[in-house]
Design a protein around this nucleic acid. Sequence first.
DNA 1: TAAAATTGAATTGTATACAATTAAAATGAA
DNA 2: TTCATTTTAATTGTATACAATTCAATTTTA
Lengths: 144, 144
Amino acid sequence: MDCPQLKLENQLCFPLYAASKEITRRYAPYLEPLDLTYTQYIVMLVLWEEKKCNVSELGKKLFLDSGTLTPLLKKLEAKGYIQRTREQSDERCLSVSLTAEGESLKRKAASVPKSMASCVNLSEPEAKTLYTLLYKVLEGFTAE
Amino acid sequence: MDCPQLKLENQLCFPLYAASKEITRRYAPYLEPLDLTYTQYIVMLVLWEEKKCNVSELGKKLFLDSGTLTPLLKKLEAKGYIQRTREQSDERCLSVSLTAEGESLKRKAASVPKSMASCVNLSEPEAKTLYTLLYKVLEGFTAE
DNA sequence: TAAAATTGAATTGTATACAATTAAAATGAA
DNA sequence: TTCATTTTAATTGTATACAATTCAATTTTA
């Protein structure tokens, strides 16, 4: 059995998987001064934009479920970056919002994207193409 | 603070992270009949090509370390797909090779790539471009 | 309106991931 | 040749991920 389609080099999934992991790993040194992991960082990105968000909204935006988010949000709360409160109007919903400390952390994070961009060896147009193709893959999925 | 560079939509890392996770997740139904997870599957891809490989070689090819591979390889051994033996010439090295059952699993796996490709909503040239850009990112990293 | 269905988080269980450390084996230098 | 160094896996500890289940709150329906 030759099966060229089973060769690692013929998979599209693999460089996607490997590149994603490598990028996440290389974020760590830049995120460590903020006391954030990569996943915690993208949650903070949403909150810096939205100010307030419940768990299911976070999950939809970030492709994460409550099994991942619940413990992660408890950690962010323990660090003092966010508050978790039940919504008055619907006690099922957990509302997540920034503390003053969480808000001020945004200033320290401002330099992270530039530092990371310099790690990725792509030209601006290449990066844009990659971005577009990745979103096309994602949207092709959500279409189901 | 406006900080456009901190918006989720301006990150290249995020669609990479999300698309990778989604693809991995969508492999599961196709891999379940093989009793393989995604990571176990890519280990098998290497072994179907190489026949024999030690842990550090696997790690280099797949961007995984021994902390991930050691327990994963023990599971593949427990399933009866691989053998783990110390090399005669250097007892530090653990040689991983296919059993007859692991080898014959290749036949059942042959249809997986085509099934997955149909999940990804890209034209052939788009997929090729994506592939090339992802490897460029990966190679830019290994250059350090 | 009371029961059924749905929704939103939390919990449980399994499987990665990776940093840091450990331990054994092999190599190299004095 | 002996001891320090290096190499290779394994182990430990922390942090995701996600499927499946549970549980409480809300909504829908008969």
